[in-house]
Design a protein around this nucleic acid. Structure first.
Lengths: 175, 175
DNA sequence: AAAATACGTCAATAGTGCTGACATAATTTC
DNA sequence: GAAATTATGTCAGCACTATTGACGTATTTT
């Protein structure tokens, strides 16, 4: 008990010395902070928050996904989703259709309005990404993609591949 | 106004077709979600949240920074910071010292306890980054760094350089 | 002396997440 | 066909993080 009235202040900065990659940890924080700030401004106009954005995004990415699937992707609880989803349905951004095979299920689809908003929200983010790719050496796109994917928990990477996302070449004829 | 009782569902997935980089947008979301999940578990043991983590991180990175500077980095309000900072001070993770030049200022320093916790929180994140770098082609570290930095708002990049980070390969001569 | 600054605090509110409990409809199992 | 399970919806209550506005105090600047 040398002194506990006020423990000794440490005056030296923590650095990568300890074998910890603080540089990238911090960059990741700043990058994500600004990455989300773009759509936040648009969302505010609608009285929506980030939760609405995420729901809208995934419903547009996987039209027809069920509530359970959405919960699994977002990693939140049913009750947390309820409020947000209800608002998006009430404002005609998303519609529910009864599942064809299992009529208990509600398949979620975006409306034209919902798709437009999803696009509007993604546009500034995409611009930011595009600019960042150019600034950091254009051709490295694949490197960035691989890195980000490798940051995701292995057992959850399946969620990514569900998306009819990137067929690399960008020409995905029909589906 | 063809039908507004229930707007038409769109059944096709949104893709990069629209010139929007949904692939990376989504990867960024997943990557950050899992990136923050590691420390979240540790924080829960202390009854802390992400806000505590961020404060602890930056106080360790820039010992002696003032409350105003911290607010500027975190981009939150004084009131939001107040409770979190108070808890960290009450639990002896952080100490305040009167500013030497301006005695109104409170310089924030980590204690040994605070430094230890900051390291414990960063360790799993650093491991994840390290693993991701290896999986995605080890030598590309600089590419990832440049990309993440380019994702940050230009006018806020100054915040990054404040850190006595690593003088490795980034030439931040003057800008 | 007055104004501005740095910080602390109190009160009230919003958004997003949580747990637990219960209800309904539909499907599956026995 | 009855019972159990599943998918979803909803209600009530709580926690954390963030917000704005207002006020007080000490200190520095004008």
């Amino acid at each position: 008990m040398t002194s506990h009235a006020a423990a000794e202040p440490i005056r030296t900065a923590i650095t990568d010395e300890d074998g910890i990659d603080f540089a990238i940890i911090e960059l990741f924080f700043f990058a994500y902070r600004d990455f989300t700030s773009d759509p936040d401004q648009i969302l505010a106009e609608y009285g929506f928050g980030r939760a609405h954005h995420r729901v809208l995004h995934f419903v547009n990415r996987r039209p027809g996904l069920t509530v359970a699937e959405l919960l699994d992707v977002l990693k939140i609880t049913k009750q947390s989703l309820a409020r947000v989803l209800k608002q998006l349905i009430d404002t005609d951004h998303i519609v529910q259709l009864q599942g064809p095979r299992d009529r208990r299920q509600r398949e979620l689809y975006p409306t034209a309005k919902g798709r437009a908003l999803a696009l509007a929200l993604a546009r500034p983010q995409s611009r930011r990404i595009h600019a960042a790719l150019e600034d950091s050496g254009a051709t490295e796109r694949a490197v960035i993609e691989r890195f980000l994917e490798a940051m995701v928990n292995p057992e959850l990477r399946a969620q990514i591949d569900i998306v009819p996302a990137k067929m690399s070449g960008k020409n995905h004829g029909d589906h």
